[in-house]
């Protein structure tokens, strides 16, 4: 049974979270680009190529994973010219392009170019990455900035426009309302939660790039609260994510307002998880 999320039609409810799945490598390794997923959400695209943060980038946590990846990627031009067309040949379902930036202008220029690209089916504004020094989370932490960015992106595209929010804010419902006021079609709740891991010898962050975000089972309650609060505040369609591992997790998020659900960290230990959950959900 197909569903519609923010004007985007999906064959079923399960997606990947941006930055947690490399469809090209999955195709090469497993013979399936996005197994069990209704579409594919790309890693966040930035204007310029980025190597990402220095190592170390990950640290274990009792109930999840800490990361400070720092948005590595080929940059907008290579993404549009090479990667996106390749994805279109291997991915099942629509392609949702995640967009990041370090200024409003960077975001809007990428959105404009994606609007003209036939392989992009929807756009997700990442205003919530905790692992870069400027842009992203600093925009998504402020309702006014979020509304301005969303409105500017809205004028640049007619494609379905999603805004991915952070729970590391004082009141996520206010940010959600700002995204709605700017013209978002749907919300994505939530990105990793700001967190860090400490080097016991230096008493400083373990990560080469500072920052840090927590994902995995530890943040499922945070995600539930965020989806509930944003749904109540806006009535918008929501893609829920955060700590989803089981059929119950999917159903819990949908019970508080999520229309689709994305898998992230749990895919790391089982790349076949979406297939298994589809079977358990009877989809």
């Amino acid at each position: 049974m197909s569903i519609t999320v923010g004007r985007l039609e999906l064959a079923h409810t399960l997606l990947n979270a941006s930055g947690t799945w490399d469809a090209v490598e999955a195709q090469r390794l497993f013979g399936e680009a996005n197994p069990g997923m209704a579409g594919f959400v790309t890693k966040t695209v930035t204007a310029e190529p980025r190597p990402g943060n220095p190592a170390p980038r990950i640290a274990p946590s009792r109930m999840g994973l800490l990361n400070s990846i720092g948005l590595p990627g080929p940059g907008r031009d290579a993404f549009l010219e090479t990667l996106l067309p390749e994805l279109a040949t291997i991915v099942a379902g629509p392609i949702i392009c995640s967009v990041g930036g370090f200024s409003l202008g960077e975001y809007v220029e990428t959105v404009e170019q994606l609007d003209h690209h036939s392989d992009c089916d929807a756009i997700e504004l990442n205003v919530s990455c905790p692992n870069v020094e400027s842009g992203c989370a600093s925009i998504g932490g402020d309702a006014g900035e979020t509304e301005r960015l969303t409105a500017a992106a809205r004028t640049a595209t007619d494609k379905p426009l999603f805004v991915k929010l952070s729970a590391s804010v004082a009141d996520i419902a206010e940010i959600a309302k700002a995204a709605q006021a700017g013209g978002a079609d749907a919300l994505v709740c939530v990105n990793t939660v700001k967190a860090t891991a400490i080097n016991r010898w230096t008493h400083k962050s373990q990560f080469g790039g500072g920052g840090g975000g927590l994902s995995g089972a530890a943040i499922k309650p945070v995600a539930l609260h965020a989806v509930l609060a944003c749904s109540d505040a806006t009535g918008l369609d929501i893609i829920g994510l955060g700590g989803v591992e089981t059929k119950d997790d999917v159903e819990d998020l949908m019970s508080v307002g999520a229309k689709a659900v994305a898998l992230g960290t749990a895919l790391f230990r089982d790349p076949s998880l979406a297939k298994k959950l589809r079977f358990e959900l009877g989809e």
Binding site: L29, N53, P54, A55, I58, A59, I69, P72
Partner: peptide, 27 residues
């Protein structure tokens, strides 16, 4: 050698310096 969360390119966590920049050890 590098710490890894997935081993198949999804997490981008296993950064090592190759060709003078950060790349995924698993890929």
């Amino acid at each position: 050698e590098a710490p890894m969360a997935c081993g198949f390119g999804g997490c981008y966590g296993c950064a090592v310096e190759i060709d003078g920049t950060w790349k995924r050890c698993c890929i």
